[in-house]
Design a protein around this nucleic acid. Structure first.
Lengths: 334, 334
DNA sequence: TTGAAAGCGCTAACAC
DNA sequence: GTGTTAGCGCTTTCAA
């Protein structure tokens, strides 16, 4: 069916070794044969079989990446930054969506590692549930965790300091006079959810604010933001501020508030986390915690390359301080 | 290093053939050996090598997908729908971002096909420039084009009727009294850009509206929308409506108009295309043309499966009629 | 039911 | 500089 290296060899009247040498750019072939081989390859429409090559070489010049939810714009932004930082090296990036499901995550991890990717970049779905499948493969493949991490798991990580970030949001609304602050976020499955939750409670305590509002922990999606907003509106009175675990949730909250004629920021302040592109374009523009994509991606690739070069390199955990971006959802520039 | 099938065979005291049979679930092995083999595999932490398997079988139970820009939320939405429709079958989906660059697209196509994906779903970057690399591989791998297509290229396609969609947008603003309508879209590289452009001009002619406004063709990104909005504002007077080639552009236009105190829809009407999730949450909510993700994904998988089952099946081009969604950017429910 | 053995397409020793 | 050949790890005839 498709031409193999043998066909090319036969057609060019040389050995398969010579063809291989020409194709991989080995310098030890006479110009004349290089010409003949290239000619034959072109004539036969030869394309090298990457699977055979991978089996033989044990390496593929490919990086795998797994994100928990491609529909959350934060992840595509990270992916684009990673692509940019991978760009020059000519490596391919194969991306997978684990759909927030550790069973699918496991399947994708095994698929990627089984295909011999040279390295794996992963935003693990769960702080505990993602451990098993990563343990299976970490002896085999360099792994770098981005954004989220698996608890007590010995793999590099780079992300922002979630606790610090949420703390900044809480301090911001408190500085605006908010006393009753509701936290709307995701259930404590992922490290992001855990750290942001911890950060919220610490900051509230530190500021001497009450923690008696109901816990509203669902998913990191706009749909949950809508639901949470409705729950908030059924309470006796509106809180002073709603601090959200990410921008998706905040966008949902904002949408539902608008639908019900609750004014932001006049009636209630709202903050997000991530600074997805639409945060600035929402109605009203969303005050949020900015994650520095480029920096995250740069560190991520640096960690990966370091580990690929030397598997024994000391494990690193890099927490970058995120920054508060003030917009109209908390009253505009402060 | 990592255990192979031979190690398992030795450990279990059977032949590699038996191990292979057990691992692939062949029914012709005695229960006793099945037990021994599974035991050995577990003990050794055996994971099958997907590369070797692929080389031997020539098939991988994996589908490749390439989108031109993962940062445009329309594509993640399609990807999620495709994942859903692939879900039950247990196939893996490897996603790549061609970054609107035909050189990268070519590299990714060859990477995926070289890794023996069983099928390729692609949103081609260019109506003409993407042809070369697809021609190289179409004899080897089933290909389905989604959303965009390569001109005169014999591969299945499913997408919405772009011309019809833009026509609906134009008719809508015209019905609201707009006479001077500006079209802001992307340069005519992709089939989407071409079809939407054609649709715009046809609809304007049909309605007897003037086509003397400047052509504003850039990229399908919000940043271009901002730039185009500025260009529009430097004109002698504001047009009655701005019809955008997609929602990203419209969101950029909306943002820039807001920044410069141009009121939408009072001063000018604005429409988009795609109905990305954020369209409903923009300020003001965006009137747009909805693309039915689920239906597109369902047809896409159907086409792919049909072609994988029979490479000779007649080529199909499926154009789905999109629907107009009226929101406040053109004055709300009409 | 089980095992021996022949490759899948390629690369990299190793010879010449 | 070029060719011969031994595998990479697996599946699948073919025999027994």
């Amino acid at each position: 069916m498709t031409a193999t290296i043998r066909d090319v060899a036969r057609h060019a009247g040389v050995s398969v070794a010579t063809v291989s040498r020409v194709l991989t750019g080995s310098r030890t072939v006479s110009p004349e044969l290089v010409e003949r081989v290239n000619e034959a390859a072109r004539a036969l429409g030869y394309r090298h079989n990457a699977v055979a090559r991978a089996l033989r070489r044990g390496t593929t010049n490919t990086v795998g990446m797994i994100v928990p939810e491609i529909g959350n714009p934060f992840f595509p932004a990270i992916v684009e930054a990673v692509e940019r930082h991978l760009g020059g090296t000519g490596r391919d990036l194969f991306l997978c969506d684990s759909q927030q499901d550790i069973a699918i995550e496991r399947q994708r991890v095994l698929a990627l590692v089984g295909r011999q990717v040279d390295g794996l970049i992963i935003v693990p779905v769960s702080a505990t549930g993602s451990r098993a499948c990563l343990e299976e493969v970490i002896t085999r493949t360099p792994i770098v965790q981005v954004d989220r991490y698996v608890e007590d798991f010995p793999a590099d990580w780079v992300g922002v300091d979630d606790e610090l970030g949420i703390g900044a949001a809480v301090e911001h609304v408190a500085s605006l006079g908010a006393k009753r602050v509701v936290f709307v976020s995701a259930t404590l499955d992922s490290s992001s959810a855990v750290q942001r939750h911890v950060g919220f409670e610490r900051a509230m305590r530190k500021l001497g604010l009450p923690l008696d509002e109901p816990q509203l922990l669902g998913t990191f999606r706009a749909e949950w933001g809508r639901v949470a907003a409705i729950k908030i509106l059924t309470g006796a009175s509106l809180p002073d501020a709603v601090v959200c675990g990410n921008d998706e949730i905040a966008v949902g909250v904002l949408g539902e508030f608008r639908r019900r004629q609750v004014r932001v920021p006049e009636d209630v302040l709202v903050t997000g986390f991530d600074d997805i592109r639409f945060a600035a374009l929402a109605d009203p523009p969303l005050t949020t915690i900015r994650q520095p994509h480029e920096q995250l991606a740069a560190e991520c690739i640096r960690l990966l390359d370091a580990r690929m070069a030397d598997a024994g390199t000391p494990m690193q955990r890099i927490a970058i301080a995120p920054s508060l971006v003030v917009r109209e959802s908390t009253g505009g520039t402060s």
